[in-house]
Amino acid sequence: MWAYWQSVPAHWREIPARYRLEGGECQDCGYRMIPREDICPKCGSRNVKPINLPRKGNVVNYTVIWNAPRGYEYYTPYVIAIIELEDGTRLTAQLTDVEPSDVKEGMEVEMVLRKTRVSGESGLIAYSYKFRPLIK
């Protein structure tokens, strides 16, 4: 089931967001979001169009996970952060290539694509955005 095995269609339909940071922009109030909603959470407009969000941002808040859910236990400790992208859009993402003790609020990060959820040795490898300190 879901805790042990990532649903394939459920991951597949999120690929535009997870591979390319495709979100939504409300054509009426300008609010940007990920994932794209059918109805703008700010103004209720139904006129929300897909948009590719910027790949850089900074860490607003973070936590280091020592007790992971199923399917993530091999990766502990790992960092979950709220990221604010350059255009102000916020999302929750895992940080990678960083020592948990080196993470700071305001740290500049960029999107990379990494393995996020792997279903055993025979199942799907679900890749998704993660963020890492800027290289250059």
């Binding site: 999120e14 990920i34 994932p35 808040n61 973070y62 936590t63 996970i65 007790n67 992971a68 859910p69 993530y72 990766y75 790992y78 979950i80 709220i82 999302l91 929750t92 993402a93 895992q94 996020t116 959820r117 679900a126 998704s128 993660k130």
Partner: peptide, 15 residues
């Protein structure tokens, strides 16, 4: 968008 990246209910309380 919170659970899939590896977030948990406890992590949200931690934030």
């Amino acid at each position: 968008y919170e659970g899939f990246p590896g977030g948990t209910l406890d992590a949200m309380h931690a934030l």
